[in-house]
Design a protein around this nucleic acid. Structure first.
Length: 574
RNA sequence: CGGGCCGUAGCGCAGUCUGGUAGCGCGACUGGUUUGGGACCAGUAGGUCGGUGGUUCGAAUCCACUCGGCCCGACCA
């Protein structure tokens, strides 16, 4: 391919709306162009990148026996009602919905469990047809609260999603492991530094799930991990050993103390010398939404620890949780903000507590009276016995749940996510097959996603320098460029064409940069675009000498034309 | 959803406070000279100043509304 025939439009400046390296570089290289917030046009070279990555995904999934299909993006409401997810997705405002000319509700698919389950259910009647694993690579639509970071969090994006259907749990376990293996190979082939972490299954639902995280400072997810035990988890899911806190001792009589304008844990520590945060129980009020109702719930947490809202939503089986507003707090507790507590909490407000408070005595809490807190509160004696759950956010430095060693923290970009769904969707949608006994059984399902447009962006995040992108060879738009510095000079044109043909012959995905640019511009442009291996045919072409550049590390050297092929192949690891 | 900021030429920006002929750099186009680090010279084109309404003799500038976009916060009881 000749670059003069490809639409390439690099910019000198970073676009004003880009924050992170991958967004800046992809936009500056002209590889992506914003069409609307979170909606991008992919330039020809970027589309080559995406297609190459998608091809890797296909090869590795096909190797494990998965089948590629094409599913509709435009989907009817009924399908989503049948799984029970219409309300949740509409409630969250994350789904693009529309009406057709008849007034029927439709949506643009944010994910494809429903369509796939309906499809497989219609085609598969017997256990003899199982297992089945189908996938698709297509655009998905999510009306993100805050699209950002270019391709990282778009509203229209490309995703691979696969769904496995098995007769039983053992079949699912096997399908899951196959996909896990395939995912590892996929990200390894892309040369990405990634880690697999335990994850919350979120809106998709289901039991176990793991995320594939590309480690990068710009990552939107926080992960905690332990080098000793190999434990790694998204903070949404992570647990740790409970940090110590001073014991409360034998139960003492409760006292109510005037604490005017003392509202926060820090202020309480200052007000009551000797009462450290670990002896307090803060009571946080949340507004919780379920499918058919919403109410304010009181959540107790040890004063030195933080509530994990994802765990809270899961514990309550809620659609959404958010902090209660000041008005809601006053209505629920009868006190100003800062004085909520378990003591004298109105009966209609449900009371939850983190496990860190189980068995603890003589706590300092609020008591729902403005300007007062209570000392020596004992749960179950001075107030209702709350229902105890794991609601705590694990933090860096706390003990690993397996080894006890301090957990470390890192940022990650979620590029893949695998779930054991079980029968959640098949039961909801009545998707069954006949087992050997002639009885209908729900499919045991797994689902598996890969961010196909996000992963190349993550690759840039991990592979760039001050000059531009450094594509991993496997997903680079071209593995190699042969650039003639002066396309006016016959000897350069001839040598460039010869090397280009020779490399192509050798199976290298090579392009010929025959554009009429000045040498400086050509160097800059190719560095920015990030081709892994670059061959410059310049003033020494007449002597059969060219310049050879390995983009990673910018190692440059002179090279005889006759050695170019061998050096390119070596640089590409072939 | 809150809070803050920004919409002026393809891109990056100044001009707005203090109303009075719409500017700069890069890019683009033409001609010429160039060809090893985003070349140089000369010239050219390109903008309903996001939109609507208002104030005014006069609005990019002031006011109101509106539409886009960006950033921050979603943890305090």
């Amino acid at each position: 391919m000749r670059l003069s025939q490809i639409l390439i439009s690099t910019l000198r400046d970073d676009p004003a709306d880009a924050e992170i390296p991958s967004h800046k570089l992809l936009a500056r290289a002209g590889l992506i162009v914003k069409t609307a917030a979170g909606v991008y046009t992919f330039a020809p070279l970027m589309w080559r990148v995406v297609r190459k990555f998608a091809q890797i995904v296909r090869e590795e999934l096909d190797r494990e026996g998965a089948n590629e299909v094409m599913l509709p993006i435009l989907q009817p409401k009924e399908l989503w009602v049948s799984s029970g997810r219409w309300d949740r997705y509409v409630n969250d405002g994350i789904m693009f919905t529309l009406k057709d000319r008849k007034g029927s509700d439709m949506c643009l698919g944010p994910t494809h469990e429903e369509v796939m389950t309906a499809y497989v259910n219609a085609q598969v009647n017997s256990y003899k047809q199982l297992p089945v694993n189908c996938y698709q690579i297509q655009d998905k639509f999510r009306d993100e609260i805050r699209p950002r970071f270019g391709l990282m969090r778009g509203r229209e994006f490309i995703m691979m999603d696969a769904y496995s259907f098995d007769a039983d749990q053992a079949g699912l376990d096997e399908a899951y492991q196959k996909m896990r293996r395939a995912y590892c190979r996929i990200f390894e082939r892309c040369g990405l530094e990634y880690t697999v972490v335990q994850a919350d299954s979120g809106a998709i639902g289901g039991a176990g799930s793991e995320e594939f995280m590309v480690l990068a400072d710009s990552g939107e997810d926080s992960i905690l991990f332990c080098r000793d035990s190999g434990y790694a988890a998204n903070v949404e899911k992570a647990t740790s050993r409970l940090p110590d806190a001073p014991a409360g001792g034998e139960p003492l009589p409760m006292e109510q103390i005037a604490t005017p304008d003392v509202r926060t844990v820090a202020q309480l520590e200052a007000f009551f010398p000797g009462w450290t945060a670990g002896r307090m129980a803060k009571t946080v009020l949340y507004h919780v939404t379920w499918k058919n109702k919403a109410r304010v719930v009181a959540v107790m947490m040890r004063g030195d620890l933080e509530v994990n809202e994802v765990k809270l939503a899961n514990a309550l089986d809620a659609l959404a949780v958010r902090l209660a507003t000041d008005d809601e707090i006053r209505a629920a507790t009868g006190a100003e903000v800062g004085f909520a507590g378990p003591v004298a909490l109105p009966e209609e407000v449900p009371l939850l507590a983190d496990e860190s408070l189980q068995g603890r005595t003589n706590l300092l809490t609020g008591c729902n009276r403005t300007g007062y807190h209570c000392l020596n509160v004992n749960l179950g004696r001075d107030c209702r016995q709350p229902s105890f759950k794991d609601l705590r956010t694990a933090r860096q430095g706390e003990g690993c749940p397996l080894s006890g060693r301090p957990l470390e923290q890192a940022r990650g970009i979620e590029v893949g996510h695998i779930f054991k769904l079980g029968t959640k969707y098949s039961k909801a949608m009545g998707a069954t097959f006949m087992d050997q006994g002639g009885k209908p059984q729900p499919f045991v399902m797994g689902c598996y996603g890969i961010g196909v447009s996000r992963t190349p962006a993550a690759a840039v995040e991990q592979n760039h320098d001050d000059k531009g992108i450094v594509w991993p060879a496997s997903i680079a738009p071209f593995e190699c460029v042969v650039a003639m510095l002066d396309p006016q000079r016959a000897e350069q044109v001839m040598l460039g064409a010869r090397l280009y043909a020779e490399l192509r012959e050798a199976g290298v995905d090579v392009c010929l940069d025959d554009r009429a640019l000045s040498p400086g511009a050509k160097f800059k442009d190719n560095e920015l675009l990030g081709f892994p291996v670059q061959v410059f045919v310049g003033r020494k072409a007449g002597d059969g000498q060219v310049e050879f550049l390995v983009r990673r590390g910018m190692q440059k050297s002179e090279c005889a034309a006759g050695e170019v092929k061998a050096r390119v192949l070596a640089a590409l690891g072939r």
